Amino acid sequence: MSSQLSELLQNPQLADQLLSEAQTRGFVTAMAAAPHLLDPSEWLAFLWGGDETSPFASHEELETYANEIVNMWNETREALLTGQWQWPEGCELDDKELVSEPTRQLAEGVLQGWQLARDDWETIMPEESEDNALLGGVLLCFSLLYDPENAIDALSQEGADGLAQFEEIFSSVPTMLCGLTLRANALVQDQ
């Protein structure tokens, strides 16, 4: 994340009004993975709760923020389409909490962003299609990472070694997310 964007996200006047750094990264990742390119003007306001009025003190601050978000989107889209996307720094498993707070927040951001592109996903990967299983698997992984305590319980109830399964889920997310983005891109190109 650029230093300009980090500064804006850590600004005390903006911190309570904008998604956190990890949530922002997750939301932008969801937008970058979406099957159809969504204009940032359609979703930028969701990064501050959807209000029509931005929380920025000046137009210059808003413009800097928007430009940095678009740069992040471009970098993330490129990483997803080339199979290079990885968990950002700070996103990791945690012995005590199962996942680090940035991991949980990134997962939350992805799930929030997915809601905006949900219709596109359901159109391109309808419920009865094989592709829907890939989409469902990715969404399940992010849901489990967002709520790891319940995920471990559910995995244990199924007779699985919850922690080992959880580590496998975390490790597979980059590959699955890149694969989903590539498949969606191919389906859109074929239309």
Rank of each mutant, 00 (worst) to 15 (best):
S20G: 07
L134V: 10
A160R: 12
F170G: 02
E60Y: 02
T175L: 14
S58L: 04
S100D: 05
L5D: 03
F27A: 07
T175A: 15
M1W: 07
A32W: 03
W73K: 10
Q23Y: 01
G83Y: 13
D131V: 00
E101Y: 01
S2D: 13
N74M: 14
G137H: 03
E122V: 10
S6D: 10
L44C: 02
H59V: 11
A164S: 15
S3Q: 14
E108V: 04
T76H: 09
E108K: 10
C141R: 09
S172F: 07
R118V: 08
P148N: 04
A151I: 07
A107L: 01
W73F: 15
N71I: 10
G83H: 07
S41P: 00
P148F: 05
E167N: 10
E42P: 00
Y65S: 06
M72L: 15
E168W: 06
G113L: 08
D147H: 04
E63V: 09
A30K: 07
L81A: 02
P12K: 04
I152Y: 04
E89L: 09
T123C: 11
A186L: 12
D51F: 12
L62H: 11
A22G: 03
T123N: 13
P174S: 05
D153E: 14
M1V: 13
L106I: 07
P148E: 00
E127D: 11
P126E: 01
E52G: 14
T64K: 00
G50S: 08
A117H: 01
Y146Q: 14
E149L: 04
Q4V: 12
E97I: 05
P35K: 07
L81C: 05
H36I: 12
N67S: 14
Q86N: 14
M72N: 06
E60L: 07
Q23N: 08
M31F: 06
V173C: 07
L144E: 12
R118G: 04
S143E: 14
G83R: 09
L47F: 01
D190Q: 13
G162T: 03
S3T: 14
A154Y: 06
A66L: 02
S54N: 13
L106K: 02
C178N: 14
E127C: 00
Q4A: 13
S129A: 11
F56D: 01
M176Q: 15
A107K: 01
L8H: 01
E101K: 08
T29A: 15
E127R: 10
A66W: 08
L8Y: 00
L44A: 05
N11H: 05
I152V: 07
P55S: 08
L8N: 06
V188E: 01
G136E: 12
T64V: 14
L44Y: 04
L44N: 04
I69H: 02
L182I: 13
Q13L: 14
L187H: 01
A66Y: 11
P102K: 02
Q157W: 09
Q191R: 10
W73T: 10
E60P: 01
E122S: 10
V110L: 08
D95Y: 10
E7V: 03
T123S: 11
E149R: 01
